[in-house]
């Protein structure tokens, strides 16, 4: 297998994903199959090739005047928040 249990733990930590103990092995298996599968890209000759980040070639990022366009909708947005108080989003204590 290309990726071990330990690799999965490491990737999951970077991605901030909790993976159950009994799922580490299955994920190591399926991720290895995916990585092995994409290895075939190595067969393509790409020495003189520019990487392509998006499909609209020649398009430049549009700019606009830095003017306020949106209004404050904090109360509306916070209706979806798990925990708020006095207009603030609450999280567990960070500084002891």
């Amino acid at each position: 297998m290309t990726l071990t249990r330990h690799d999965v733990e490491n990737i999951a930590r970077l991605a901030r994903l909790q993976i159950r103990e009994d799922q580490l092995e299955p994920f190591a298996g399926s991720l290895s199959r995916i990585i092995d599968f994409v290895e075939q890209l190595g067969s393509a000759a790409t020495d003189q090739v520019e990487p392509m980040a998006h499909p609209l070639q020649g398009m430049v990022q549009r700019l606009r005047e830095d003017q306020v366009e949106a209004s404050d909708q904090r109360d509306l947005f916070q209706q979806n928040a798990p925990e708020v108080a006095a207009g603030l989003y609450l999280v567990p204590r960070v500084i002891e």
Binding site: V8, L17, F27, S30, L41, G42, A44, V49, A53
Partner: peptide
């Protein structure tokens, strides 16, 4: 989760060129 982890792996230090940059070139 599988896709997030695949993405995290191909973008991580040491693998970026071999996977992500390579794929962007094949995309071209």
């Amino acid at each position: 989760k599988r896709r997030i982890m695949t993405g995290t792996y191909v973008l991580s230090a040491g693998y970026y060129d071999a996977y992500y940059l390579k794929a962007q070139k094949v995309r071209s």
